[in-house]
Amino acid sequence: MKLKNIGVGFAVGVTGGMLISFLNAPKSGKELQQSLKTGSNDLKSQMDQLKIEGEEIKNSFLKTKHESSEVFSTLGDEVKSMISNFQADINPNIERLQSNIENISNKADSAVSEMTGDSKKDEDSKE
C-alpha cells in the first residue's frame, strides 16, 4: 500500500507541476517555438558576422606584416647607405690624423736623437 501511495503522490505532483507551468508560461507553445527560432537565427547571423570580421582581421594582419617587412627591408638598406656615407666622410679625417700622429712621432724621435746626440757631443768635448 505504501508503494501505491507514493505512486499516486508522484502522479499528482507531476500533473500539478505541469498545470502550474502551463498557466504561468509567458508565451504559448507556438510563440515559444517562434521565439527560439528567431533567437537561433540571430545567433547564426552573429556567428557569420564574427567569421567575416575574423577574416578581415586576419587579412589586415597579413597586409600589415607584408608592409612592415618591406619597410624594414628599405630601412635596412637606408641604414647601410648612411653608414657607408659616414665612413666615406670620416676616412679622410682618420688618414689626416694618422699622418699628423706620424709627423709628431717623427719630430719626437728626432728631438730625442738630437738630445742624445748633443749629450754625446758634450761628453766628447768634456773628455
Rank of each mutant, 00 (worst) to 15 (best):
L43C: 03
K121L: 07
G76H: 08
S84R: 10
K63A: 13
D109C: 01
K44L: 09
Q98S: 10
V71I: 15
F61I: 13
F72I: 06
N41P: 00
N5K: 14
N103I: 13
S69L: 12
M115F: 08
E123I: 09
L62D: 11
F86T: 14
G16A: 14
S105N: 11
S84D: 11
G16K: 01
G7C: 07
L97G: 00
I94H: 02
E53R: 06
A111Q: 05
G16T: 14
L36G: 00
G117L: 03
M1S: 12
E102V: 12
N93G: 13
K27M: 14
L19A: 15
H66D: 14
S99A: 14
D89C: 03
E78F: 02
S40Y: 06
I94G: 02
E31P: 02
E102D: 15
K44F: 06
M82Q: 11
L62C: 00
G29L: 12
N24Q: 08
S99E: 09
N59G: 01
N5G: 04
E70V: 05
N85H: 08
P26G: 02
L19I: 15
K58D: 07
L23I: 05
Q98N: 15
L62A: 10
N85Y: 05
S45M: 09
L19K: 02
D118H: 05
N100Y: 07
D122S: 13
D42W: 02
G13A: 15
S69V: 04
T15L: 15
Q49N: 13
L62S: 14
A25L: 02
L97H: 07
K30Q: 08
V112W: 04
G117Q: 10
D122K: 09
E55V: 14
N103P: 00
N100W: 04
A25N: 09
N24P: 00
K2Q: 07
H66I: 03
K58Q: 11
I101D: 04
S119W: 06
V12K: 05
P26K: 03
K107I: 10
D109F: 02
S113K: 12
D77Q: 12
R96H: 09
D48H: 07
Q87V: 04
Q34V: 01
L23N: 10
L97I: 15
E70N: 10
S110D: 13
L19P: 00
K37Q: 11
N24Y: 04
N106H: 03
Q46C: 03
F86R: 11
K120L: 14
D48T: 07
D77V: 12
E55I: 11
Q87C: 01
K107V: 04
D42A: 10
G16N: 04
M18V: 15
M47P: 00
F22H: 06
F61S: 08
K126P: 00
Q46E: 12
D122Y: 09
S60W: 02
E78M: 08
I57N: 04
E56S: 11
V12N: 03
S99G: 10
E95I: 13
